[in-house]
Structure formats: C-alpha cells, structure tokens
C-alpha cells in the first residue's frame, strides 16, 4: 500500500515538473516585480501593457497568426489528400510514398532549418513569409495526415461504394460523404497544425530574415536580459497554443454516439 502511495506521489511530482514551467510563466506574468521570483511583488498588468505597445512584438504576433492560418489550411489539405490516398488506393511505391509523406517531423528542426535556408537561398526566398509557410507546411502536413487517417480508418469500407452505387461520382462522394465523415478530424488537423506552426521557431529563425515571427522574437529576447515581458508574451502564446491543442484533442477523440 505504501509503495503505491510513493508511486502516486512520484507520478504527481513528474506531472508537476511537466506543468511547472507553464504555471510559473502565467503566474509571474502578473507579478509587478521586475524580476519574476518570490516573494510576490503584487498583481499588475504592466507587462501586458508593455508588450501591447511593443511594435516588434505586435508585428511578430501578426506575422505568426498569418503564417499559422495559411499553414493550417495548406497542411490540412495536403494531409487529407495523403490520408485519402493511403485509404483508397494501392499502387507500387506506396511504401516509399508514405515514408516521404510521414518522415519530416522525425528530422530535427534545426537540420531542416539549415537545409531550407540553403535551399531557399538558391531560389531567393529567404527572408519572406512564403519561406516560413513552405517550411512549416512540410512539418505540419504529416500531423494532419495522421489525424485524418485515424478517422478514415473508422469509416466503414462500404460507405463510399454505397455513394457511388447511388449515382455519386467519386468527386461528389468525396464532397458529400468523405469530407463530412472526416470533418471532426479536419478541424482537429486545422487546430493542431496551426498550433505547431504558431510555436515553431527553428525553421522560422533560419529562413525568416527580418520577417520575425513571434517565437523568433521570443528567441531574440531570450538572448538578452530576463524580462517579465517575455512572461506576458509567453502566457499569450501558451493560451493560444493550449487552446488549439486542446481543441484538436477534443475534436479528434470525441467518440461518436453510434455503435
């Protein structure tokens, strides 16, 4: 019994370790003191005011929103197309095809960043938002594919043939049957790819040049003095990505009432 208690306590401690940085950043973003530590210096919104008037932060925030919005749509489309290809078709070379489609997240982003920097510099894309978007779609599409593929795996193999049988062409079947079925996972994929793109800093750092996204701005701030302003930005970033990631999980794991 006591062994179990110890094990429970250990588990709680491990989760505290995982959650501590998140909790700390949010709590201290409201601390009036210049250095975020104990004792508590009083509640204040100073740091939020400071970042709202910081043009570099605002510009970075707007860029990040723009990038993640476009990335999520592109990556989800590619993810759906790939998941559907895997679900519906058999062809020679399917294994290497799927490997190519699924592999990008396993390469360290640092190395992808360097690779993309050298590649984009050859085609004069470095320093553009387009470069960041392209790079982010590369790592986001596989997440979208995985989510949508899981949903397709639950679709009865007779559903699409039934639609064809009732006179719907394959294109119309995609639109009126397959996409409606996949809708929860499509929304989940939109949310998760937006979150990944919104948080990604390595590829963005390498290829963005002067077009800093918010995480790249944070990276720059990190190299300087400790400042509670980062707590405020961090809290906002966390709020956005936790919302997106949580939303994605709710959508992806929502059990259907059927069966």
């Amino acid at each position: 019994m006591t062994a179990s208690r110890w094990q429970a306590a250990w588990t709680v401690a491990v989760f505290l370790f995982i959650l501590a940085p998140i909790a700390s950043i949010v709590v201290f973003s409201f601390n009036a003191d210049r250095f975020p530590s104990l004792p508590w210096g009083g509640f204040s919104l100073t740091w939020y005011e400071a970042i709202l008037t910081d043009d570099t932060v605002r510009a970075g925030f707007v860029r990040s929103l723009k990038v993640s919005a476009i990335v999520s749509v592109l990556a989800t489309f590619i993810g759906f197309a790939t998941a559907y290809t895997d679900y519906r078709f058999n062809f020679t070379g399917k294994m290497p095809y799927l490997a190519l489609a699924a592999l990008p997240p396993t390469v360290p982003v640092l190395i992808l960043g360097l690779a993309m920097l050298s590649f984009f510099s050859m085609v004069n894309l470095v320093g553009t938002l387009r470069a960041i978007i392209i790079g982010h779609v590369v790592i986001c599409a596989p997440f979208a594919m995985a989510l949508i593929r899981m949903r397709l795996a639950d679709m009865s193999p007779d559903i699409e043939p039934a639609a064809w049988n009732l006179g719907a062409s394959r294109w119309r079947t995609i639109w009126s049957v397959t996409i409606p079925w996949c809708l929860p996972s499509i929304f989940a994929a939109l949310a998760i790819t937006a979150a990944v793109s919104f948080d990604e800093f390595m590829i963005a750092w390498f290829v963005s040049g002067l077009e800093e996204t918010l995480p790249v701005r944070i990276l720059a701030l990190l190299q300087g003095q400790v400042s509670p302003r980062i707590n405020a930005i961090g809290s906002i970033v966390f709020f956005i990505s936790v919302t997106l990631a949580g939303l994605a999980q709710l959508l992806a794991t929502r059990r259907d009432r059927q069966s």
């Binding site: 009865s156 007779d158 039934a162 639609a163 064809w164 009732l166 394959r170 409606p180 059927q258």
Partner: peptide, 18 residues
C-alpha cells in the same frame, strides 16, 4: 458504378451516419 442504375442494399447497410 455511378453511371449504373442498380442500387444495392448492403449487409452493413452502409448508411451515411452523419
């Protein structure tokens, strides 16, 4: 299949669940 007029009743029913 979509150009034939031979609707089918499936063992699994294959109704559109949504």
């Amino acid at each position: 299949p979509w150009e034939r007029d031979m609707p089918m009743v499936w063992q699994s029913y294959a109704l559109f669940p949504f």
